[in-house]
Structures are given as C-alpha cells and as structure tokens.
Computed example of a mutant assay.
Amino acid sequence: MDALKAFSASQIAWVSQSPSAQQQSVQYSTSALSGLRQAVGQFNNTNADSVLATTCILVSQSKDWLSWSSFLGGINSIAAIIESRQQDSIYSDNIKRINACWARQAASRTIDHFNFQRGELLSRINRSLQQLRAHFGTRPVEIYWIDQCLYLIQCLQTIDPANTVEDQFNHLIVLRRLVFWLPAYLLHDGSIDMLKLSVVMHLYAVALALEPFFPGLSAELYGDNAAPALLHGLDRMKAMQPEMHSSNSTPLMQFPDAILAEFNA
C-alpha cells in the first residue's frame, strides 16, 4: 500500500509541483522499501504477487542507476521464481512478458524494427518534433514539453551511443521521467484535446522508436509498455477527427502512426 501511496504522491508532485507531495512520496517510498525487504526475507507463494507488484511500482520511481538496476534485477528474479514454480498469479501475463524481455536481453538480441541507423533515426525524430511544434501557436505549456523532448534528442545526437546498460539508463533518464509522468500532467484537468494527445503520442512514439538502441531498458520502458498506450491514444485521436471540422489532424498523427506500424511489422 505504501508503494501505491508513493506512486500517487509522485504523480501529484509532478502535476502540482508541490514540495509537500514530493516529501510524502519519499516518505512512502522509504516505508515501502522497508516493508519490501522484510517480505523478501519471508518470500513464499502467499506474498509473491505483492512482492512483485511492490517492486514494479518502486522501480518506476528510481532516480539513479543503482536503485533502478537493483529493483529491475529483483523483478527478474521474482518473476522467474513464480514462473518456475508454476504457481497461480494474478500477474501471469506480466510475468511472461517480463521473462521474455529478459531472455531477449540475455541473448543480446537487438530488435531491429527500423531500416536505418541511429543518426538517421534521431534526425527523423527531430524533424517530427519540429513539425509538431509548429502546430501549437500560443500554447506555451505544450511547447515547453516538446522543447524538452527536442533537447533530449539533440543531446543524443551529439554523444556516442550507449555501450552499457548504465549508459543507456543515464542517456534516457529524462525520457523515462517524461513517459511516466508527463501524460498525467498534461491530461489531469480532464480537458483532452487533439493537441494534448498529439504531444503524448509523440512521446510514446519516441520511446518506441528508440528501443533498438537501448535494449537494456526494454523490460521497463518500451515495447509491450509503449505500444498499447500508443495504439489506444491514436484510436482516440482518430475518433476525435470529426470534431476538428476544417482542421487537418492527420499531420499530428503521422509520425506516431508510422512508428507503431513499423514496430508491429
């Protein structure tokens, strides 16, 4: 329960920029970690699901490589144990996906969904974000977050590819935070329009497009996590098209739609 409270407090802190919410998040995370350590020491069939769920929630709030890798390693071990025991779990589908991701990573397979190199991909993302930005006129909030994504991509264009999982984590720590928290920040007030959704869909598309170059993060951030959210969001945007009347919304969906199609190819 403390892990869920920590996650909720983190989300509130992101949306409201509240220092007290951030402090609460730290307090709940500390309490959840203490409880997790105790539960791991008494790991059994009864508490396996709660241990797995708590670890998955806490990994999303990791702010540094050491804690992130520790939690992710724990998720891998717990999922493998549950599957090896063939015990019933409410997270059976998630466990299969986790184990598949780790098996893929252990085999050092890079999923090459795209037929161009890293530099070409980053240039393509840069162009798409620049084109998206041109649609926003006097909407400073969305422009600010598009600029944050652009800055990240431009930084990646100036540095060498990540050679270790730690490098991958450090290169994408900003994108990781945006994927977890920005959708809630942009959509929390309930007024969902095509432009807000287009920012979120481009964010998911960027994460999905970068997967082949950051395979060490795929178990947490990409693939089966980003693709369903992207599909759902694009379906929502397509359903909203009749409301746009004279406005042409197709350019807002073009890049995310293409990335999803390439991922599923």
Results as ranks from 00 to 15, higher is better:
residue 107 A to F: 03
residue 177 R to Q: 12
residue 84 S to T: 10
residue 261 A to M: 08
residue 52 L to F: 11
residue 237 M to Y: 10
residue 240 M to H: 06
residue 2 D to S: 13
residue 19 P to S: 15
residue 99 N to T: 06
residue 124 R to I: 03
residue 76 N to Q: 15
residue 194 M to P: 03
residue 49 D to Y: 01
residue 112 D to A: 15
residue 85 R to S: 06
residue 227 A to G: 05
residue 82 I to C: 07
residue 207 A to V: 08
residue 124 R to Q: 09
residue 141 V to A: 08
residue 59 V to L: 13
residue 94 N to I: 07
residue 260 L to M: 10
residue 61 Q to P: 05
residue 224 D to H: 09
residue 83 E to R: 11
residue 218 S to Y: 04
residue 101 C to S: 12
residue 131 Q to T: 13
residue 48 A to P: 04
residue 131 Q to F: 14
residue 221 L to H: 00
residue 122 L to P: 04
residue 138 T to M: 07
residue 4 L to I: 13
residue 159 I to L: 10
residue 241 Q to A: 12
residue 189 D to P: 00
residue 75 I to M: 02
residue 256 P to I: 00
residue 83 E to P: 06
residue 155 C to T: 11
residue 59 V to F: 05
residue 230 L to W: 13
residue 131 Q to S: 12
residue 229 A to S: 07
residue 109 R to Q: 14
residue 136 F to S: 00
residue 163 N to D: 14
residue 18 S to G: 09
residue 160 D to C: 00
residue 123 S to N: 15
residue 22 Q to R: 11
residue 160 D to S: 13
residue 32 A to Y: 01
residue 260 L to D: 14
residue 235 D to H: 08
residue 205 A to L: 00
residue 122 L to E: 07
residue 104 R to S: 11
residue 36 L to P: 00
residue 225 N to F: 12
residue 199 V to T: 04
residue 17 Q to C: 10
residue 182 L to H: 03
residue 137 G to W: 07
residue 255 F to S: 00
residue 237 M to H: 13
residue 222 Y to E: 03
residue 143 I to K: 08
residue 244 M to K: 03
residue 162 A to W: 12
residue 59 V to W: 09
residue 249 S to H: 06
residue 142 E to A: 06
residue 229 A to Q: 13
residue 6 A to C: 11
residue 232 H to I: 05
residue 87 Q to Y: 00
residue 60 S to V: 03
residue 167 D to H: 12
residue 177 R to S: 09
residue 67 S to G: 05
residue 125 I to P: 09
residue 16 S to Y: 10
residue 196 K to N: 09
